[in-house]
Amino acid sequence: MIRLEGITKHYDTGSRRVTALSGIDLAVAKGEIFGVIGHSGAGKSTLLRSINLLERPTSGRVIVDGTDLTALGTKQLQEQRRKIGMIFQHFNLLSSATVEDNIAFPLKLAKTPKADIRRKVSELLELTGLTEHRFKYPSQLSGGQKQRVGIARALAADPQVLLCDEATSALDPQTTNSILSLLLDINERFGLTIVLITHEMHVIRSICDRVAVIHEGTLVEQGRVVDVFLKPQHPVTLEFVEQVSDPVELPPAADLAARLLKITFLGERTYEPILSKAVQATGVTFSILQGTISKLKQVPYGQLVVKLEGDGAAIERTIETLRADGLDVEVA
């Protein structure tokens, strides 16, 4: 659906050249929610705005739904941009226009018939939970309501892609969760491809299918959220993971007669008594030293640090049994 090939962006400031992006290669599949996370100044906003060419790359290609946007003229690019909606951190609403008129604005620019505008606006008001706020002005709305107006406006032209530029960073945690739930509902209901940037791992963990980590203009890690979250490979990724979880780590093995394991469960198997069955079959005993259960998007996962005690051969059979059941087992 979206493919970035060798995207590089330089800014010339006087005699100095600043590189915001360096050789970015990225692919986003149709219908997925793709997150880009990085610290302030890492280049994530530049990367997001490169997708609709609000920031034109110094070099590289941006291909959306089979069309190379970097090869288009001004008029053709404007037509393609109608397929790409965008929501912003600070809402960017028209302060002198009502909620209804803010949502209708892109439809009026496209010279959509009035009857179609009324119908579409009513649908979007209902979708975003704003029907009772139809005739209010932005100054009369909460931050979450303003962002819902921004989402409705971005959806007005029935885009294929929705770009989210730090869409929840100005909101409190409860409101953030409600906006994330709305984005997830929109994605599932319409199959809309969503690309979002954030500096909050909670956002990535809550709704994204895949994630890319950007650092100093370079993608340092990318993959399924499950894989990146549970086994971060880059120090920056580890920093973000630690925002939302207590690290589950193996302590030093002090007792030579025991083995310490870190076991990772994924999916519905998180709730199954796999460990209990394994030790019953082998006759070893276990103690839970540390543990957590949570969710990545809608996928449950759990991590346990346990101490196994018993016959050495029986402990080895227990470890083999757990791994044969598809669990990730790290041994101290």
Results as ranks from 00 to 15, higher is better:
M1A: 14
G6H: 00
T8C: 08
H10Q: 13
T13I: 09
T13Q: 05
R17F: 13
L21R: 04
L26E: 05
G35A: 08
I37K: 03
S40Q: 08
A42P: 06
G43I: 03
S50F: 02
L53F: 04
L69A: 11
T70C: 10
L72T: 09
T74Q: 02
I84Q: 05
M86H: 09
M86E: 08
M86Q: 07
L94G: 06
D101Q: 13
P106C: 15
P106F: 07
G129Q: 06
H133L: 14
R134H: 11
K136Q: 15
P138Y: 11
L141N: 09
S142E: 02
V149A: 07
G150W: 00
I151W: 04
A156V: 14
P159C: 09
Q160D: 14
V161Y: 00
P173F: 11
T176V: 10
S178D: 10
I197E: 02
H199C: 02
S206C: 07
V211S: 03
I214A: 07
I214S: 03
L219G: 00
Q222C: 01
G223I: 00
R224K: 12
F229E: 05
P232T: 03
Q243T: 04
E249L: 14
A253R: 06
A254F: 00
A257L: 04
L260K: 03
T270W: 03
K277A: 13
L289R: 13
V299S: 03
G310D: 04
R317A: 14
L322M: 12
A324I: 12
D325P: 01
G326W: 00
G326H: 07
V331Q: 04
V331P: 02
A332T: 07
A332E: 11
